[in-house]
Design a protein around this nucleic acid. Structure first.
Lengths: 226, 226
DNA sequence: TAATGTGAACTTCTTCACAGCC
DNA sequence: GGCTGTGAAGAAGTTCACATTA
C-alpha cells in the first residue's frame, strides 16, 4: 500500500494519529520552556502556545497515563522525559541518508536531527563522483556506494532512513532500503511509496506545503470577492 | 494564536482540512499519470496509489463539483487543471525566502518549487557577509538585507514566504514578514509561530517527522514484546 | 460491466461539563 | 482559585450501500 504524506500508515497501539502528531509539538514546546528555566506548565499554557485547547492537551497526555498534579500542572522536566520515552527518543537512533543532492547535503548539515537524538551515521549515493566524499566537508559523514547498504545497516543497527533521491528513482531505492533492513523511511521524494507491511513511511513534500498555503490564500480571495 | 505544524490554522470555506491535504497528493499523482501518457483515471486507481479508498477520492473531489464520467472515470488532463485551479497553482506565485543558512540554500537550489509554479524571486538574510551573494551560485537569487523586505514584497507582489531562520529568531522574523505584507508562511523553524489572524502558517519540522517514525517503531517493538 | 455521486450509518476526534484535588 | 482527569455529548471525517449513468 502507498503512504500519504504526513500520515502514518499503520497506527501503532490505540493511540489516535492526531495525538501522535501533536506529541512531537508538545515536546518541542516543552523543550523551549525547559530552556527558559520554567519548572511547571499547565495544559492551558502548553495548548495556547500551539493553538490548542487545554482539554485537548490533557486528553492527549492521558493516553499514556496520568502525570499531572491538580492545581499545579505538569513538571516540565518530568513531562519532557515521559514524552521522549513515548516517542522513543529517550535513546539515540542511528539514521542513514540516501541521495546526496542539494537537499540531502543540507540535511547532512542540519543540526536539528542530532539535537533530537537522531545521528546520521551513514550516507549513500548512486553517483560514483560523490562516493568517497565526506559531507558536510571536510569532516562529515562518508558517502558510500549503494552496494554497501545492507552491510552498513546491519553493522550500525540502522532502523531509520532519509530518502532524498529524485522521484523517479524513489520507489526502487526505497525497496533497496527495506531489503537492507531499514524499517522506517522519511521520504522527501515527490512521490508516494509502497513498502512491505512492516515498513513505515512518512512523506515530506516541500512543494505540497506551499500548495496548502496557496489554497488558503486563494480560498480567502474568493470569499472576499463573493 | 499559534499554529500547528501540518495543520492549517483557519479552514477556508467549508472544505475539510484533510481533504485539502489530500488534494495536493492527488495532484502530484495525477501529474505522474499525465506524464505517463494515460488519458483517464478512476477513483480506485488514484486512491490505490495513495493508500486511500475510491470513495474517499470521490468524496474529496465532490467538494468542488462533479467532473467525472460514470463508467469511465476522470479525464486526467481535465482533473489536473481543475485541481490546480482549486489549489490556486494554475497561475504562478512569487515567493520569498528568509534565512540563507544550510537549509535555505538547499531550498533555493530546489527545483521542485518552480515545477509547481512557485518562483522564489527574493531572498533575505540578516548576515551582512551573505547579503549581496547570488544563491545558488553563480546565477541564483540575490540575497538582500532584511531592511528591503517591505519594498521588495510590494514591488514583486509577494504573498508567500519561506522561513528558514533559527528557532530563536523565528517569531521576530515572522512578524517582520507579516508586517511587510506576506500573507502565508512556510515555517521550517523548530518553533510555533503566532501571526495576526489573516496570516496563514504551515510548519515543517524535519526532526518532528523522524520522531513520528521512531514512535511507530517503538510502539511496534513494545507490541511484540508484550 | 464499470464507473461516479451521494444519503445514511458508522467511527473517530474534539469539546463540554463536572468531579476531584491542591 | 486554579488545575487535572474523564465520562458524555457533539462535531467531523470515513465507510457503506446503492441509485445512476455511460
Amino acid at each position: 500500500m502507498g503512504s500519504m504524506a504526513h500520515r502514518v500508515k499503520r497506527r501503532a497501539d490505540g493511540i489516535p494519529a492526531p495525538t501522535v502528531r501533536r506529541l512531537s509539538l508538545y515536546l518541542r514546546e516543552l523543550e523551549n520552556i525547559l530552556d527558559a528555566g520554567t519548572q511547571t506548565v499547565s495544559s492551558r499554557r502548553l495548548g495556547q502556545a500551539l493553538g490548542l485547547t487545554d482539554v485537548q492537551v490533557r486528553k492527549d497526555l492521558a493516553c499514556f497515563g496520568q502525570f499531572g498534579q491538580s492545581g499545579v500542572g505538569y513538571s516540565v522536566d518530568e513531562l519532557v522525559k515521559r514524552v521522549r520515552h513515548i516517542l522513543g527518543t529517550d535513546r539515540p537512533w542511528n539514521v542513514m541518508l540516501v541521495g546526496v543532492g542539494n537537499l540531502g547535503r543540507a540535511l547532512l548539515a542540519y543540526r536539528g536531527f542530532v539535537r533530537k537524538g537522531f545521528n546520521v551515521v551513514a550516507a549513500f549515493d548512486h553517483d560514483p563522483t560523490l562516493v568517497g566524499k565526506r559531507l558536510p566537508e571536510p569532516e562529515g559523514v562518508l558517502v558510500r556506494p549503494m552496494s554497501e547498504m545492507a552491510e552498513v545497516v546491519a553493522r550500525c543497527g540502522i532502523r531509520l532512513g532519509i530518502l532524498c533521491v529524485p522521484a523517479a528513482a524513489a520507489q526502487g531505492v526505497a525497496d533497496q532500503m527495506a531489503a537492507a533492513g531499514v524499517q522506517g523511511i522519511l521520504n522527501f521524494a515527490a512521490t508516494s511509496l509502497s513498502l512491505p507491511d512492516d515498513g513505515a513511511v512518512v512523506g515530506v513534500d516541500l512543494a505540497v506545503h506551499l500548495e496548502q498555503l496557496s489554497f488558503q490564500l486563494t480560498a480567502c480571495d474568493q470569499a472576499h470577492v463573493s
